[in-house]
Design a protein around this nucleic acid. Structure first.
Length: 767
DNA sequence: TAGAAAACTATTTTT
DNA sequence: TAGTTTTCTA
């Protein structure tokens, strides 16, 4: 089991039971270390499966961990506490729903459900949603929860923030009334359950002797608190992560948790996994050199014994279209050389960039697959069916009620629903319970709907989970509705797939053949360590499954939105954002759109931390490649309906020449955009022949616009020095639009990057 | 209440 | 430009 590990890996796997931090570089065998340690701990008798917990961020990672542990050790992994933060918190809250103050059948809102709940709340409370946009409110609430703060603890400093906190309070009350929790609430509730309830806390503290955490750099403040609380009884926290691959700060992830963890827990117990088994030397050294430009790293240098391999190839093209054509040409020759298409990835910073490339691949007839579309459980028809099922499990779920009360159409209009909402508010009850208070024709339509739901509940009482789903799809009228739709065939297929998913879920969870709406007589998740459990006096702390098959399936649907990949199976080129590529590897990788303003993205340039996260993103992108790494940029690009001109990304300058092969002639200028800090400059836009660009059509058909903009009697071009009365001197790093609408992005020496309207701002040209 | 027209928006998104 | 969401109109 441990013989084939390298010394650092082995040290990590066989570490004594103390807190430890493993700095695992890209491609260094992180998952292997994690799973081998779990197996090793169990096999050497240091812990029973019952006393082990492993936390991940994605369901995919959790599944992979279980599969790999099961491959090493013949144990039943079903009752193991291995899962996502949210999944494990859900499990804990189900077991202790009463102590957590939740109904047994509480439902989980996904982000979209949460947003519609907030919209409904604002409407009901008569709050101006121009002043308090639902999205901002959602972010505010989630931020607060992820920092571990309830409304009373949020700092208020003006009327605006006071109102936001007020809305947060109302939102909490609404969720509580309806028996629903959002993602962040799962974590916060679980944390509060442990911190407030000593018997339960001590139970779990006694129980879990080893807690392993994957992707530790992505943990937020609340997750960190939850972990340290759980480990407070002497468990060993084994945290694995890579600070250089922290790319989710914008979602609340706190890289600082790694340094904090080292200081507070893992002092002297830091293990670095630096041998890379993925990439050749040039690629690795290029990535190392790039990431060196970040400050405050924990420090790590990847190495390989695989040899230097091919240099990193860089291509600069006049336009996004030509960039795409070049990628296409390279892919053709890679495939001709025997590289399977699924081993080729095209990465980009933002989703909008995929279109041009997709178009080229499509026209050329090269199979491709774009990651990041709608996921299975997020599809309209699936969410509708699930909403009916949610109403069966929990009549008070107003979000679900509103989603399907008039779908398929039942003649229940906006004003009927408004009077229903009013009635619900005045009587302090759910929408379902407010039905009798609504008078008139609307009232009778509502009553009919209520009867339909009640009838469905009655008719499905003894049905198994897949039978229930089938019944709901039919009785709700969804099936008939989509049969009558011209474009309904795919949606019908997805609904059938939902029945299959329910059957598969029932099988995997031990619910097969059991009535979906009743608590199973015996626990499918049998305690792994019965004796230890028998002596424990904490009620509910057993691994008894306290969920009905229906609730369990609904949780599953919320917590695991399913694959978001389109057509699988075929050998296709893989296209995705850099974020989506984290954790994956390919034989050949194209990183496209390496332009200032795009990668690094302009919105990130305001702060140093933003730029550093962009650089980590670039690091992640580069380290995906095993054999071939291509970096490319376009001097002009169609963006938001306008042609935009940009300079080369600074990241290209941060990759040392000795690891690079420029496929385009490279012109250096003496001036540098950042006012002299860098020694090299940027070349002016050129056409495909390397001549100064003058708005001609390139030989390959791509339209190349002029890279200069004329406003009044002044002409501006990329790389030009300018002076602004207030902002001082700077360099134009991007241009878009024409005439009075033209805008320039300017990197000022003192005040950073700004976008100015050239028709308004008064700029002087500096020689 | 559906469908059309207008208005708005565009970085990344594990759960 | 292109997609989604809101508002208008019959």
């Amino acid at each position: 089991m441990i013989e084939s590990l390298n010394p650092q890996q082995r040290a990590a796997v066989t570490l004594e039971p103390r807190h430890a931090l493993v700095l695992a570089g890209a491609g260094s065998g992180k998952t292997r270390v994690l799973t081998t340690r779990m197996a090793w701990l169990i096999q050497t008798g240091q812990v029973t499966p019952y006393g082990l917990m492993a936390v991940t961020f994605t369901n995919k990672a959790a599944r992979e961990m279980l599969t790999r542990v099961a491959a090493i050790l013949p144990i039943d992994t079903r009752g193991l506490w291995v899962g996502t933060f949210h999944g494990l918190c859900n499990r804990m809250l189900r077991a202790h729903h009463r102590d957590a103050g939740l109904p047994q059948t509480f439902q989980i809102l996904d982000s979209a459900d949460q947003l519609s709940a907030i919209k409904r709340l604002l409407k009901g409370a008569g709050i101006d949603d121009d002043k308090y946009p639902p999205r901002d409110v959602q972010r505010f609430i989630n931020n607060a929860k992820e920092s571990g703060l309830r409304p009373a603890q949020v700092e208020v400093w003006d009327n605006f923030s006071r109102k936001q906190v007020e809305i947060y309070e109302l939102y909490e009350a609404q969720c509580q009334r309806e028996g629903v929790v959002d993602f962040a609430e799962l974590l916060l509730r679980a944390y509060e359950l442990l911190s407030r309830n000593a018997p339960i806390r001590e139970h779990y503290q006694r129980r879990f002797r080893h807690i392993l955490v994957d992707e530790f750099q992505d943990t937020n403040a609340l997750q960190y608190k939850w972990l340290t609380l759980l480990a407070g009884g002497g468990a060993a926290l084994f945290a694995v992560g890579d600070d250089d691959q922290s790319i989710y700060a914008f979602r609340g992830a706190n890289v600082g948790n790694m340094a904090d963890f080292e200081r507070d827990y893992a002092q002297g117990n830091v293990i670095r996994l630096e041998q890379n088994y993925r990439s050749y030397g040039h690629i690795l050294d290029a990535a190392n050199a790039l990431i060196e430009h970040n400050d405050g790293r924990m420090g790590k240098n990847l190495w390989t014994d695989q040899g230097a391999g091919e240099p990193v190839r860089i291509m600069e093209q006049p336009s996004d279209l030509l960039e795409a054509q070049w990628v296409l040409d390279e892919i053709r020759s890679l495939v001709a050389d025997g590289c399977p298409r699924h081993e080729i990835a095209i990465l980009y910073r933002s989703n909008a960039q995929s279109r041009v490339i997709e178009h080229q691949l499509f026209t050329a007839g090269i199979p491709y697959r774009v990651y990041g579309g709608l996921r299975f459980f997020e599809r309209q028809e699936i969410k509708h069916a699930l909403a009916y099922m949610r109403l069966l499990a929990n009549p008070g779920d107003d979000t679900a009620w509103l989603r399907v009360v008039n779908f398929p159409a039942r003649g229940i209009g906006a004003r009927t629903l408004e009077s229903q909402a009013d009635a619900a508010r005045t009587h302090g009850v759910s929408l379902a319970d407010a039905v009798p208070f609504v008078a008139g024709r609307g009232g009778s339509s509502l009553a009919q709907f209520a009867t339909l739901i009640a009838q469905m509940r009655e008719d499905t009482r003894r049905l198994s989970l897949p039978e229930l789903v089938d019944h709901v799809i039919a009785a709700s009228g969804l099936r008939a509705f989509y049969q009558g739709e011209r474009e309904g065939a795919e949606r019908l297929e997805n609904l059938s797939e939902l029945i299959n998913a329910a059957a598969a879920f029932a099988g995997e969870s031990g619910y097969e053949g059991l009535p979906a709406g009743e608590l199973p007589p015996s626990a499918p998740f049998a305690p792994l360590d019965a004796p230890a459990l028998a002596t424990d006096e904490v009620a509910g702390a057993a691994d008894v499954n306290v969920m009905t098959p229906l609730s369990a399936f609904l949780s599953h649907a919320s917590l695991e939105a399913g694959d978001n990949q389109a057509q699988a199976g075929q050998d296709a080129v893989q296209m995705m954002t850099v974020h989506a590529a984290k954790g994956l590897e390919f034989k050949a990788v194209f990183v496209t759109g390496l332009e200032e303003g795009l990668f690094p993205h302009e919105n990130s340039l305001l702060e140093q931390s933003g730029l550093e996260e962009e650089r980590r993103l670039m690091y992640v992108a580069m380290t995906r490649a095993r054999e071939r790494l291509y970096l490319s940029l376009a001097q002009s690009r169609m963006l938001h309906g306008q042609t935009r001109y940009a300079m080369r990304s600074r990241f290209l300058e941060e990759v040392p020449e000795e690891h690079v092969k420029w496929l385009t002639p490279r012109v250096r200028e003496s001036r540098s955009w950042d006012g002299g800090a860098a020694s090299s400059g940027w070349n002016a836009p050129r056409d495909a022949f390397g001549r100064p660009d003058s708005g001609t059509t390139s030989p390959r058909g791509g339209r190349v616009g002029g890279a200069s903009v004329t406003v009044g009697d002044q002409q501006f071009r990329i790389g030009q020095g300018v002076r602004h009365a207030r902002f001082g001197e700077g360099t134009i790093i991007g241009l878009s639009g024409q005439g009075q609408d033209a805008q320039a992005q300017i990197q000022f020496q003192d005040v950073g990057a700004k976008t100015l309207a050239l028709g308004i701002a008064k700029l002087d040209v500096v020689a």
